[in-house]
């Protein structure tokens, strides 16, 4: 029972954060929202009985992707002036 409630809750959370990542004008907020989608997707993998995929998604999809996005954003800002 708790598993079904948690899955519905995490699904709603993931979809709201994804829509926010698409619609927001500020690029920094969009990148943070995309990272949050990855983090909550890793909790959903845990309910779907896949802890190895959850670990990899939390490490690569959320951590390393965010670092690469901010590295590129910083390079673009530095060339601007």
């Amino acid at each position: 029972m708790l598993n079904i409630i948690l899955a519905i809750f995490l699904g709603i959370l993931i979809i709201v954060l994804a829509i926010m990542a698409v619609l927001n004008k500020n690029i920094v907020v969009a990148i943070i929202a995309a990272g949050a989608v990855s983090l909550f997707a890793s909790v959903l993998y845990l309910i779907l009985a896949a802890p190895d995929v959850a670990m990899t998604e939390a490490a690569i999809g959320s951590g390393l992707s965010t670092i690469i996005f901010f590295y590129v954003l910083n390079k673009i800002n530095r060339q601007n002036g």
Binding site: A18, A34, V37, S38, A41, Y45, E57
Partner: peptide
């Protein structure tokens, strides 16, 4: 950059789909 963010969301969606097929 927003286009690349959309691509990353697409990727995450396919991963959720494939894991829930095997449950």
């Amino acid at each position: 950059i927003k286009i690349v963010i959309g691509f990353a969301l697409f990727d995450t969606g396919t991963h959720i789909l494939m894991v829930s097929i095997g449950y």
